[in-house]
Structure formats: structure tokens, C-alpha cells
Design a protein around this nucleic acid. Structure first.
Length: 596
RNA sequence: GGGGUGGUAGUUAAGCUGGUUAUAACGCCGGCCUGUCACGCCGGAGGCCGCGGGUUCAAGUCCCGUCCACCCCGCCA
């Protein structure tokens, strides 16, 4: 091994070498990506952040370098001095950006060795994700992953530049803060100097950014870590990064305009692509009716049609009973699936059942009409109108769910996505942005038998719905909005309540008494009484944006050191047991059974 | 908490209705090789078949439990 000396310092990145550099002497630093040892000539693909280039070690040109080259193995760290030259005719490699040139090594320093690596660092490595996560530092060396994190850094930079240029201040909010009972489960941190007391890691800096508005900062934006102790999904990590925004003296339109500007900026900077503004808007109700979800993927059609009135009036008891109980009968038209086998239709039914549906009715569309075991329950003219309303063509398959509104939406929404993918109706190169607006202010908590805030308790109701607060709270719509990209919720926010009377009414509805409210959010309520400006904001999931921009299937792919589904880190083995002494200092006794 | 998929060499996989010494590719080690780029050729080493129990003359294979990874439901204001 060689000492790292000043003459070993890099003069240019491996991946940047081009014919322009021919005849220049360069020093490269990087990792041995691959070695091709011909006994005489040795070829080394040297890799750094920018890519790889072929280094040629010729025993006649440099016997010393060649002697060392014999010991080289994959992932050894080298400094190579040599002259860039054009590759001999016929030996160019069109697959490499550096493929027209190579570096003829004059000296070679081995700066470090490497044990044989546990898995191949090819871009298309087939190593299991758990192996890659255990050796994440190796996985992160892979060029495609480095490209992804380069893009993510560009995204974050683009966001910061946009907010800076638009007069936003980046102000840090605490990570050790107060547990708030509403919302997700908190990660707790014990306080040593206050035995028995706990901080919570923020689920989001929600309350602080509102207080910053009370403080008069007017425009705030922060890229900030948030923590939620809930079960994980492919698109949910326990710690994640938000682009957190709050503005004063604004209404929804100002937020929409500012955030559409943000989207235009990051799409340009990261994807080199424009965004059509204004971004289309859909009310929550319309989204649910047409797509079955509050975050529809609008890159394809397959919209839901309502047949409640049409099909409740028949002798098919399942349908009529659902309708009489206030449920809905809705369906989607699957193009070209009329010839599906019994098992294929059963598979579709399974998809619908995940959404909660008890079953899935189907009608095959033929040139003559509708064919189905259920056809006998309906009159000719009903079937004719069904076919007409479904806009189905011969060869299509009508799929119908009868259930409560929520279940029908969930089942058909899921079925729609499944069919969209199965039938190849989704163009992965498209990016469809969408605002979903007018969310319900409240949702009924069946278990606790009380109203809960759908967004959070400080979300303002629509002015025109204020009277409904007293008569029909479930109908009150909120000044809340989500931004949806390709069927993924990438951001959400609201205009906040800044009037004390409305806030009190809200707490009343949520069954949070004045004393409880003071205990839970006293500092915010008090702040709101000292001249709070009208304000509102939004927060975007930076990880989700990075995931969609890079086409990743999992949030883990865009987080350098992600957690597994059980919220552990395979590289560090966190979380782990701690020393009894540490626990004693914190006045904590562990009651969980010890794991062996 | 629930449903599903998977776990066999360093890695990725095969191993059928249970049956002699558990295969292959890549990687690794040794040798040869001056225009390769997934270099090539010859030889070699490498296994707690996730773990525990059971059934059986016999278990990688069947059964039960458990752990781990992933997908989903619940949960995620």
C-alpha cells in the first residue's frame, strides 16, 4: 500500500475524460471497478462519482506500475498518473461516455485495499435489498444510486433557490419538542434532567411554523426531518423529509400560485421538463366519485360510473339492499376483458376485496348485449341503459361493486389502478400534477364515536360552510388541499384558523375541552391571541418527490440510510438495547421481555 | 394486530410426488495469457439448506412454532 502524497491528488474525475483531454497528463483517484489482466497488458476500469474510465497498464511502458497491477482487486482505491490518449482504432467502447479515450498509466499508487465485496456493484445488481442495506456504503457506490442522490441534491437545491428568490426565510424548528396527542404516534425522547418527562420528535413543525407567522416572519420555508412512529410501507418511512412552507396574509389562491411556481422550477431543474399551469383542480368529492381515491392517478381514464339508481331497482337482492341502506352501486368498464376466464375474473374480485368489497359483479359486453349470470335479475331496458351508461364496446367487461360509499370507492379505486397497470394504460414517462381541494373538515371516528380533524385541528373551514358547523358538521368542507403527482400524495396543507371563536368551536366539535386544549396546544392558542395574521401553508414530501422523479419503487431507494419495514437499520443495527446505567440516568425501567 | 410472498455456497438461483456424495452461474483462490471492456483458457476451495421442534427407516423437501426481508390491510391529524 502507498501513502497518500500530494502528487496523488486528483486533477480530474475519471468519468469526465473526453477526447478533448487527449495528450494531457492527469491524476485520477477512484475505485477499481473491474480488472482485466492479460498477463502482459492490464486493463483497469477506474470509477469515481462521475463515472469510469479505462486505465491501461503496459509492462513495457511502466514496469513498476505493472508489478503493482498484479495485486489489484475489485474496489481497491487507487491514484493513477498517466496520459490521456485516444483508444486504438477498433477498440473504442460505445457503451461508455469515456469510451473514446483511455489513460496510459505511468505510476500507480494503491491507497487502500478492499476485502472481496459481498455483492456485485453493477447497476443492475440482483443482490437482495437486505444484503444491499447491510452494506449500504457499498450499495451507495453503484453509479445509478449515485446518480439518484445527485438528482435528489439538485432537487433540494432547486427548492431552496426558489424559496430564497421569493423572499422566504429558512428558520430551523426544534427536534426535541412537545408531544402532541393528535395524529400519528410520537417518537419519544426521555429527559434526563426532568426525570419521567419526555420530549417528542416532531411529526412536522406544524405548530412552530404557525407561531413563526404570529412572529411576523411572513414567509417561511424549511427542508426538515419529520418523525412518525407508525407502520411502514413502500412509500412511508419513520423519518422522512418535508419541504415545509407557511405564508401570512394569503389565501388559497396565493398558496396554489406559489407552489405551482415551485413545481415548475423543480420540474425544470430536475427533469428538464415544463409544468402546465394552472395545475388542474379536483374537489375531494369529485375525486372520490370519479376515481375512488383522494389522490387519483390521472395519467389514464377508466373512471368510475354510478349505477345506483339504475340497478337498485331490480330483483337482485344484493344490489337493492345496498341501495336501500344508503350504499352505492358503481362500476368501471374494463376494455377488452370480456373473454376473461373465470379465474381471471376471480383475480379481479380478489383485488376488489382488498378494498373491502364483498364481491364483484361482472357483465360481458357482446355485440348482442350484456351477458352475465346476473342478467336475469334485470329488465331488458335496464340492461340496455346500463350498457349505454357504461360507454362499453363489445369485448369490454363491466365490473360492478355494490357497497357503502367508502368501500365502493376503495374497491373500485384499487381495481382501477390494477387494471390500469395490467392493461398497460399508464405511460410512465408522464407526470400528472393535480390539486385536490375541499376536503371534509372532519371525519367520524367510529371507535371513539367522535369527530376527528381530517387534516389537523387548526384547519379553517370554508367560509360558506361555517353555518354547517352547528347543523351538519360532517358536511363542512375545509380550506385544505393536497397536491397529487401520478397517484401519489406529494403534499398537503391548509389555510389555518386565526380567529379564536372559530378555533373554540372547532375544539368543541372535536370534543376537546378548554382545559384539555390548553394542556395540549396552549402555547399555540395563546400565541394566536396576540395578533395572529391570516396564514396558511403546505408541506411536501421531499422523499416522495425524489422517488417519483427517479422512477424508484420504494422510498428506501431515495434515502441514503433507510429503515426496514420493522423500522430497523440493517447497517447500524438500530434500534438496540442500551446500558442499564443509561436507563438509570433517565429514570427508565424497561418492561419488555428481553430478546435473545 | 391481520393477510400474502420469500429465506439453499460470498451473491443470484435450481433442487419434482421425502431416498446414495446438495447442483449451476457469477464471485473467490492458484496457474497461463499484450487490446480487453460481463476478457479468455486450465485447475481448486467454498454449505448450520434462517433457527427450534415434530413426523419418518430416511427431511433442503412434509407438519408445527419462531426469526428475518419484502408487499398489502389496519394505522399514518
Amino acid at each position: 500500500m502507498d501513502t497518500f502524497l500530494p502528487e496523488h491528488k486528483r486533477t480530474i474525475h475519471c468519468g469526465l475524460l473526453r477526447p478533448d483531454h487527449i495528450c494531457r497528463e492527469v491524476v485520477l483517484c477512484g475505485w477499481v471497478h473491474r480488472r482485466r489482466d492479460h498477463g502482459g497488458l492490464v486493463f483497469v476500469d477506474l470509477r469515481d462519482r462521475e463515472g469510469l474510465v479505462q486505465v491501461v497498464i503496459n509492462p513495457e511502458a511502466s514496469p513498476e506500475a505493472h508489478a503493482k497491477a498484479d495485486a489489484l482487486r475489485v474496489e481497491y482505491v487507487l491514484s493513477v498518473r498517466g496520459v490521456v490518449r485516444r483508444r486504438p482504432a477498433g477498440t473504442e467502447n460505445a457503451n461508455l461516455p469515456t469510451g473514446e479515450v483511455e489513460v496510459a498509466a505511468s505510476t500507480l499508487a494503491i491507497l487502500n485495499e478492499s476485502k472481496p465485496i459481498p455483492f456485485s456493484l453493477e447497476d443492475d445488481t440482483d443482490a437482495a435489498e437486505s444484503v444491499r442495506l447491510k452494506y449500504r456504503y457499498l450499495d451507495l457506490r453503484r453509479p445509478s444510486i449515485q446518480a439518484m442522490f445527485t438528482a435528489r441534491a439538485r432537487l433540494a437545491r432547486s427548492v431552496r433557490e426558489y424559496f430564497f428568490e421569493n423572499g422566504f426565510l429558512e428558520i430551523e424548528t426544534p427536534v426535541l419538542t412537545k408531544s402532541t396527542p393528535e395524529g400519528a404516534r410520537d417518537y419519544l425522547v426521555p429527559s434526563r434532567v426532568n426525570a419521567g418527562m419526555f420530549y417528542a420528535l416532531p411529526q412536522s413543525p406544524q405548530l412552530f411554523k404557525q407561531i413563526l407567522m404570529v412572529s411576523g416572519f411572513d414567509r417561511y420555508a424549511q427542508i426538515v426531518k419529520c418523525f412518525r412512529d407508525e407502520d411502514l410501507r413502500a412509500d412511508r418511512q419513520p423519518e422522512f423529509t418535508q419541504i415545509d412552507v407557511e405564508m401570512s396574509f394569503i389565501d388559497r389562491e396565493d398558496i396554489f400560485a406559489m407552489m405551482e411556481g415551485l413545481m415548475s422550477r423543480v420540474f425544470r431543474d430536475v427533469l428538464g421538463k415544463g409544468v402546465e399551469t394552472p395545475i388542474p383542480r379536483l374537489s375531494y368529492r369529485e375525486a372520490m366519485d370519479r376515481f375512488g381515491v383522494d389522490k387519483p392517478d390521472t395519467r389514464f381514464g377508466l373512471e368510475i360510473t354510478d349505477y345506483t339508481d339504475l340497478l337498485s331497482d331490480g330483483s337482485f337482492r344484493v344490489f337493492s339492499e345496498v341501495a336501500s341502506k344508503g350504499g352505492v352501486i358503481r362500476g368501471i368498464t374494463a376494455p377488452g376483458l370480456a373473454e376473461s376466464s373465470r379465474s381471471e375474473i376471480a383475480a379481479l374480485e380478489e383485488v376488489a376485496k382488498i378494498g373491502g368489497a364483498a364481491g364483484l359483479a361482472s357483465f360481458k359486453v357482446t355485440a348482442e348485449g350484456l351477458s352475465s349470470p346476473l342478467a336475469k335479475f334485470f329488465r331488458e331496458e335496464q340492461l340496455a341503459r346500463l350498457r349505454e351508461k357504461s360507454l362499453a364496446k363489445p369485448g369490454d367487461l363491466l365490473l360492478i361493486v355494490a357497497d357503502g360509499f367508502d368501500v365502493a370507492c376503495a374497491s373500485l379505486g384499487r381495481l382501477r389502478l390494477h387494471l390500469g397497470e395490467k392493461l398497460g394504460m399508464i405511460d410512465p414517462s408522464l407526470h400528472h400534477l393535480l390539486w385536490v381541494t375541499e376536503f371534509p373538515l372532519l371525519e367520524w371516528d367510529k371507535e371513539e364515536k367522535r369527530w376527528g380533524a381530517m387534516h389537523h385541528p387548526f384547519t379553517a373551514p370554508l367560509d360558506e360552510d361555517l353555518p354547517l358547523l352547528d347543523t351538519d358538521p360532517g358536511k363542512v368542507r375545509a380550506k385544505a388541499y393536497d397536491m397529487v403527482l401520478n397517484g401519489s400524495e406529494i403534499g398537503g396543507g391548509s389555510i389555518r384558523i386565526h380567529r379564536k371563536d372559530v378555533q373554540s368551536r372547532m375544539f368543541q366539535l372535536l370534543d376537546i375541552g378548554p382545559e384539555a386544549a390548553r394542556l395540549k396546544f396552549g402555547f399555540l392558542l395563546e400565541a394566536l391571541e396576540f395578533g395572529a395574521p391570516p396564514h396558511g401553508g403546505i408541506a411536501f414530501g421531499l422523499d416522495r418527490l425524489a422517488m417519483i422523479f427517479s422512477g424508484a419503487k420504494s422510498l428506501r431507494d431515495v434515502i441514503a440510510f433507510p429503515k426496514t419495514q420493522k423500522a430497523t437499520c440493517l447497517m447500524t443495527d438500530a434500534p438496540s438495547a442500551v446500558d442499564v446505567k443509561q436507563l438509570r440516568e433517565l429514570s427508565i425501567r424497561v418492561t419488555a421481555p428481553e430478546k435473545k
